[in-house]
Design a protein around this nucleic acid. Structure first.
Lengths: 247, 247
DNA sequence: CGTGTGTTTGATGAATTTCAAAGCAGGTGG
DNA sequence: CCACCTGCTTTGAAATTCATCAAACACACG
């Protein structure tokens, strides 16, 4: 397995070639040594073609996945065939945390574009975490953060109308992209209107109309999937009343 | 109402020492020795009066809490003063998991009736978990299970109409009560209509009407806060289309 | 150049919210 | 013990938001 480090690991941050787990853990403050140990968990990163599933509901949990390049959606399917999108993941974010509960994945993870992930073998991660308390602590935090995110989502669905939800969605995406080093005001939506709608508890037509409204207000410029936020504060104003800006 | 019988009959498990952490961990299979060690974490259980806050958003995370007697709601407050309920907790369930993320509680936990909780000092829990791998594993699962629960909630809010949401809510509560040794068909709602509504993303009036509908269908008998499920299968039928029965 | 997938816009209708008012229950003080 | 609050629930009617249905458009791709 240690053979399976196809790329040299130059230890610290940006140099790290084969492992976006760094991005996952660094903000939480692991030491260099710990990161090196972590790197040994990454057998190999691999690609997922647009539209392909990284895993499906019911699959046994083997690995968690850190998105390295591209983006994913997670979704659940209801019996009548309708899809409920539960989240979108961009580079540096983690997939599969919900599977820890039952050792089975509870949702599908599908690539929204040609993507690349780093699998983190979960059993090995747990074992390593035993030796590295701060890693365990970070894993706990990671899981908890996901809970907080979901609560924010619940808050949004409970309190906001369609335009506010859309604004919150755009702001949230903007912020997350920014955290990962991308532009916060100019980005491309990798998902369809229908998927945004599912995520926000709305129909795709409502998303379209919402976009039109925000455009009419001069807050954003959206052409197809190209987004340009023109008045960030105005957008935030719209969703004020939500205690956090849907972090 | 009477505080000794929070939801109906006496719990089977409440005989156990002073620690409802047992109930938290037992279903996940800890050994007796591990449980003994766990017990040492419980400094003392204490009471929370109806309407009092166990903790508030912004409070530092000191302990997680296992509900021992009674019930709680967790909620977030928006600037304009509206409350978003994010969950209800009954005996044997855990409070505070979301705080691990930032070491600050992100929501308020308020007792719906005179209640009693077991605080579990979190730093000590983490330390003990270091020594007991299976405890750590269980903690991971606990966190993950919360994520799954939230996802189910998102699914519900995205796909169900008001009557279906109400049915799902009642079934969910019924099932959880049953798991804890209470009756699954006959119980008392400890929360107001408004709180149910907030939780389900609906107005209190809509909850009332939903109750009337379910009653007209002969599925439940609800007088004030007393619930009697008369046709469990019928209720489940209503929400079919949701891939799990909103576990 | 047609085909298919995704997006936009309009018109209509249904579900839910909002506003309003009355009813009920429990608790308190007279 | 009763009467009266107060907070919660129920029901009705009107208003609003969003979903649905339908059609046209845009764009990429073979």
């Amino acid at each position: 397995m240690s053979e399976a480090r196809p790329f040299k690991s130059q230890s610290l941050k940006s140099a790290c070639s084969n492992c976006s787990v760094l991005e996952l853990c660094l903000p939480l403050g692991l030491t260099g040594l710990e990161i090196e140990r972590l790197d040994t968990l990454i057998v190999q990163r691999f690609k997922v073609k647009k539209g392909a599933a990284l895993y499906r509901a019911g699959d046994p949990l083997r690995s968690l996945y850190a998105v390295r390049i591209g983006s994913f959606k997670t979704s659940m399917l209801s019996i009548d065939g309708r899809e409920q999108v539960t989240g979108f993941q961009i580079p540096g974010e983690m997939l599969g945390l919900d599977a820890i509960s039952t050792d089975l994945h509870t949702c599908n993870a599908v690539a929204l574009e040609d993507s690349e992930v780093c699998p983190v073998h979960f059993a090995q991660l747990e074992k390593l975490a035993q030796e590295l308390p701060s890693l365990q602590h970070n894993l706990n935090k990671l899981l908890s953060r996901e809970i907080v995110r979901d609560h924010d989502m619940l808050m949004m669905l409970g309190n906001m109308n369609s335009d506010e939800r859309l604004a919150a969605f755009l702001l949230n995406l903007s912020q997350r992209l920014n955290e990962r080093g991308y532009s916060s005001s100019s980005f491309v939506l990798k998902m369809r209107r229908e998927e945004i709608g599912s995520y926000l508890g709305l129909r795709l037509e409502t998303i379209c109309r919402g976009i039109a409204h925000l455009r009419d207000l001069g807050l954003v410029e959206i052409n197809g999937r190209d987004v340009n936020i023109q008045n960030m504060d105005g957008l935030k104003q719209l969703i004020l009343g939500c205690h956090r800006q849907f972090s």
